[in-house]
C-alpha cells in the first residue's frame, strides 16, 4: 500500500463509494416500497390485525419466538403458525389461553399472559395475516 495509492485516493474511494452505494440503497428502497403492496397484502390490514401487532409487541412475543425468522430462537417460528395449527385462529387462541401460570416442570413453557378475548382474537388475526404474506416460500416447511 504505497506508491501511487495515496491516502487521498483511499479517502476519495471512501467518500465516493459510500455516497454512491447509499444513494443506490435509497433508490432500491424506493422501488421496494413501491412494489411491496403486491407481496405484503396490506389491503388486508384490518383494525384487528393492527391491534394484534400491538398485542404482539406489548407482550414481547419476539423475546422467545421468531416471526419470519427474526426474534429469539427459544420457541417455535410463528410466521406460519396459522398454517401449522390447521388454518385455525381458534387453535392459536386456545393455545395461548391455556398456558399454565406456573409453567411445566423441567420444560420450556410460555407464560400465561391473561389476554382479554379481544386481545386474543387480535393477535390470532395478526398471525393469520402474517402467514398470508408472500415471503418467497419461506419457511421451507410447515415446522417453520
Amino acid at each position: 500500500m504505497s506508491g501511487a495509492f495515496t491516502k487521498s485516493t483511499a479517502r476519495n474511494i471512501y467518500f465516493g463509494g459510500s455516497v454512491f452505494f447509499f444513494l443506490l440503497f435509497v433508490a432500491l428502497t424506493f422501488d421496494t416500497t413501491r412494489t411491496m403492496p403486491e407481496r405484503d397484502h396490506r389491503e388486508n390490514l384490518s383494525d384487528k390485525v393492527v391491534l394484534g401487532k400491538s398485542v404482539w409487541e406489548e407482550n414481547n412475543c419476539v423475546g422467545c419466538h421468531t416471526i419470519l425468522g427474526e426474534g429469539a430462537y427459544f420457541a417455535p417460528e410463528l410466521g406460519n403458525v396459522y398454517s401449522r395449527f390447521g388454518n385455525s385462529t381458534e387453535a392459536i387462541k386456545a393455545f395461548i389461553a391455556s398456558r399454565p401460570a406456573e409453567g411445566i416442570r423441567g420444560r420450556r413453557s410460555m407464560p400465561q399472559f391473561n389476554l382479554s378475548e379481544e386481545a386474543l382474537d387480535a393477535v390470532a388475526e395478526f398471525l393469520k395475516w402474517t402467514s398470508e404474506m408472500d415471503t418467497a416460500n419461506w419457511p421451507p416447511n410447515i415446522q417453520g
Binding site: 428502497t29 421496494t32 416500497t33 411491496m36 407481496r39 405484503d40 396490506r42 390490514l45 390485525v49 393492527v50 401487532k53 416471526i67 419470519l68 427474526e70 395478526f126 395475516w129 402474517t130 404474506m133
Partner: peptide, 8 residues
C-alpha cells in the same frame, strides 16, 4: 402497522 415495512 405493516409488519413487512416495520421489519424493513
Amino acid at each position: 402497522s405493516n409488519l413487512a415495512l416495520d421489519k424493513y
